[in-house]
Computed example of a mutant assay.
Amino acid sequence: MKSKTIRRWSFVHTWSSLVCTLFLLLLAITGLPLVFHHEMESLLGDTPHYRELPTGSPHLDLAQLVAAALAHRPGEVVQYFGWDDDQPEGMFAITAATAGTDPNSSHTFSLDTRTGEVVETPAANGGFMMVMLRLHVDMYAGLPGKLLMAFMGLLFVAAIVSGVVLYAPFMGRLKFASVRHGKSPRVRWLDLHNLIGIVTLTWALVVGVTGVVNACADLLIDVWRSDTLAALVAPYRDALPLTQLAPASRLLAIAEAAAPGMKADFVAFPGTRFSSEHHYAVFMKGATHLTSHLLTPVLIDASTLAVTAVGERPWYMNALGLSQPLHYGDYGGRPMQILWAMLDVLTIVVLISGLYLWWVRRKVKA
């Protein structure tokens, strides 16, 4: 490779890395506990615990659970109900002052689906894990913070690509995985930086690209709302505002009949971000580990309980659904979590060594 081209790629690699390094260190450090979020929540006592009842105890219907949620949070409305496959005896409820309240201002708690008893979940409303999540996602800056993180992710991808380009001629002079122990500390760290960087290459690209997609989630959801969802609810554009909701008792049975072979992941109540003013939206998921992250909305008229549409998933929502668990290593159980954590630690080493190499080189030039 010509020296002029090498200098250009070196410039791209150096400055794309330097600009995003501090943000990536924040993401890597906060990402470690998020990889083990189930285990961390259990360790911190944030996992809801439901009292033991005889096997086969009947479950309350959704209307009864709505009443239990509203009794716990009087003066509020239910925004969402959702389920966790790991705890079939419970569900989470999200309530707020209005249906359109921002999620960060809502209140989340758990309900025992057999008794309607409320179990508070501190991790969903604050605590260590929520702090880690907010720092990782938007640094408590909302959409601007997410877009900044998306930009840093793009710089990270540019640093990876330019690093690979620079690594090719470098390895033409050395054997793969060579670390020149007899040289200066700077040369040894350069060799380690290159070695760890190339070993973690594929993982870093996956995490970087999925991180950019996740950071753009709000924008993708807004596109889905203005495009797909708007088309599905177009017949209700001139409908009068609802004065009373039909009881939610049969929502799950209706949605399962409309989407055979699928089960409910969460319910969005009328007026929320994932529904319309006139619909319950039951988001159904597949039975396999992969399809469980691809959600299909079933729109149900909130006054008559008639199914008005079964939505198709646009490609960008599929990308978002697959990116979220892949970013945090949620696909392969404990072995994948451990692998993700190890690669995360190695990435921290790459970032810190890159800063060290830049600083030493700057001093040498001075």
Score class of each variant (00 low, 15 high):
321 G>A: 05
172 G>Y: 07
109 F>N: 00
141 A>P: 06
218 D>Y: 12
285 K>P: 12
100 G>D: 06
10 S>F: 12
330 D>P: 13
107 H>G: 14
20 C>Q: 04
233 V>F: 03
152 M>D: 05
277 E>S: 11
118 V>Y: 10
273 R>T: 03
140 Y>M: 04
330 D>F: 14
245 L>P: 00
116 G>M: 09
174 L>S: 14
264 A>P: 06
233 V>M: 01
267 V>L: 11
14 T>S: 15
165 V>K: 06
246 A>L: 02
150 A>V: 03
153 G>C: 07
282 V>T: 01
191 D>V: 01
201 L>M: 10
127 G>E: 00
250 R>I: 08
328 Y>C: 15
13 H>F: 10
364 V>Y: 13
338 I>F: 04
301 D>Q: 00
294 L>G: 10
289 H>K: 15
69 A>S: 02
337 Q>A: 11
37 H>A: 09
297 P>E: 00
62 L>F: 11
345 V>D: 02
22 L>W: 07
325 P>W: 02
25 L>E: 03
167 Y>V: 08
34 L>I: 07
211 G>T: 01
159 A>C: 09
205 L>T: 10
98 T>Q: 10
326 L>K: 05
150 A>Q: 02
112 D>W: 00
219 L>K: 12
355 L>P: 08
347 T>I: 14
322 L>Y: 06
330 D>H: 14
223 V>R: 09
25 L>N: 10
145 G>W: 02
300 I>D: 00
247 P>E: 05
222 D>G: 13
297 P>L: 01
339 L>R: 11
324 Q>N: 14
174 L>P: 15
284 M>N: 03
130 M>Q: 05
258 A>M: 08
272 T>R: 06
233 V>Y: 01
241 P>M: 03
366 A>S: 13
257 A>M: 08
165 V>L: 02
332 G>H: 05
11 F>T: 08
106 S>A: 13
314 P>A: 09
104 N>K: 15
13 H>W: 07
76 E>F: 14
77 V>L: 07
206 V>M: 13
268 A>M: 05
202 T>A: 12
2 K>R: 13
27 L>V: 00
37 H>P: 04
192 L>T: 09
279 H>V: 00
80 Y>C: 04
162 S>G: 06
318 N>V: 13
140 Y>A: 08
284 M>Y: 06
60 L>I: 05
121 T>N: 04
263 K>R: 14
249 S>I: 06
353 S>K: 04
271 G>T: 00
336 M>F: 14
295 L>T: 06
232 L>E: 03
229 L>Q: 01
257 A>H: 09
156 F>P: 05
217 A>R: 13
287 A>F: 11
229 L>E: 01
364 V>K: 15
111 L>P: 08
212 V>I: 03
5 T>K: 15
92 F>Y: 12
75 G>C: 08
261 G>D: 08
267 V>C: 04
23 F>Y: 14
112 D>L: 02
88 P>W: 12
128 F>L: 12
260 P>N: 03
181 H>L: 15
137 V>T: 15
337 Q>H: 09
187 V>M: 15
281 A>K: 07
258 A>P: 04
258 A>R: 07
228 T>C: 08
255 A>Q: 10
314 P>S: 09
99 A>Y: 00
1 M>L: 15
366 A>T: 13
322 L>C: 09
59 H>C: 14
119 V>H: 09
19 V>Q: 02
351 L>M: 09
269 F>E: 00
200 T>E: 11
66 V>W: 07
266 F>A: 07
105 S>C: 15
188 R>A: 08
327 H>M: 14
235 P>K: 04
